[in-house]
């Protein structure tokens, strides 16, 4: 694609330049935090539940963004790690009576191990093989959840308890909204820190030119594996709290469509750009709420948008400044 410097790009740069000043930036962040805090009281329970879902998607999309946006690997089975997190919590708390907070690190560990098992052998291969292997892996996890007795077969697990945190019983939708607010903020901070780290620069390098990166002494496979496992950890944490929030999980929550929706959130907003990914997550969740009467055309609209974005604006709706296609 040829680089284009359209009027909208210039306008965006001018607006962005205004926000360079620290006072405005901190003011903006403060404003967002205040809005997040008053939202449940202002908009009522229905909007709070929708926003909780959107914030879960922010966490998942930021996790997938590490894999797709930072390291440039296509993962089509991301929901599998989300499932590993949710089912680990479900099985440990229900069958073994383990406390949620003790089960959480186990869920993270399980997802990380799954990431190494599936990524380890395949990250050496062509990048499109990885895409299809992750797709296959996503299906294996879903089929296994549907066939195994321990995961409750097709009906899934229900009655997963709500956790306590220092005497606070996280029980109401508003409680979970604030928990997901905290998780989303944590995900943003970790993403920002990762992006500017030594590892983040290595990902950038590998994404742009694998061979040169390797020639410069970057261990290509190790760096990709790190991205893959980091993404898996984000998904596992999201899945753990998702299970605690709903109290019930079933294999169909972790279908291929789920993986695709998370991927759309990453791509619509702009791969690799954190505000873009957050915007994408909100579009994917809030869009269908605003376009209720679309019904089954919902995914169709996203699919056409995805195609148009790839063809005409490959860097997303809100891409990184200075990086055009």
């Amino acid at each position: 694609m040829t680089p284009r410097d359209t009027a909208s790009d210039r306008l965006r740069d001018r607006i962005a330049a205004r926000f360079e000043s620290p006072a405005l930036r901190w003011g903006g962040i403060g404003l967002i935090l205040v809005l997040m805090a008053v939202l449940p009281a202002a908009l009522g329970q229905y909007a709070t539940v929708i926003m909780t879902n959107a914030l879960l998607y922010v966490v998942l999309a930021l996790g997938l963004n590490v894999v797709v946006g930072f390291a440039g690997l296509l993962d089509l089975g991301y929901a599998a790690f989300f499932a590993v997190g949710a089912y680990t919590i479900g099985i440990l708390t229900l069958d073994f009576g383990v406390n949620f907070w003790l089960a959480l690190p186990v869920a993270v560990l399980a997802a990380a191990i799954a990431g190494v098992i599936i990524g380890g052998p395949t990250l050496r291969l062509r990048s499109d093989y990885l895409a299809i292997v992750t797709l296959g892996f996503g299906e294996i996890v879903r089929f296994s959840a549907r066939n195994l007795a321990i995961t409750g077969k097709a009906s899934g697990l229900s009655g997963i308890g709500q956790p306590w945190l220092f005497g606070w019983h996280i029980a109401t939708p508003t409680d979970f909204y604030f928990v997901f607010c905290a998780l989303a903020i944590l995900a943003v901070v970790v993403s920002l820190r990762l992006e500017n780290s030594r590892l983040g620069r290595a990902w950038l390098y590998v994404r742009h030119d694998e061979d040169v990166a390797e020639a410069m002494g970057i261990n290509r496979v190790a760096v990709k594996l790190a991205a893959y496992v980091t993404g898996a950890i984000f998904a596992a944490i999201g899945g753990a709290f998702f299970a605690a929030n709903l109290g019930a999980i079933s294999p169909e929550s972790f279908s291929f469509t789920q993986s695709v929706l998370i991927l759309m959130a990453v791509i619509l907003g702009g791969m690799g750009k954190i505000p873009g990914v957050i915007l994408g997550a909100f579009i994917v969740i809030l869009g269908p709420e605003l376009l209720r009467n679309l019904g089954e055309l919902r995914l169709m609209v996203f699919a056409v948008m995805l195609l148009l974005i790839m063809l005409f604006r490959p860097s997303g709706i809100w891409p990184k400044r200075g990086v055009r296609s």
Binding site: D128, V260, L306, M310
Partner: peptide, 21 residues
Amino acid sequence: RLSILITALAVSLVLQNTVLS
């Protein structure tokens, strides 16, 4: 390569959802 893979995925979703609707 990532862009063309995503494009292929988008084409797949458009075909599926056209028939779905």
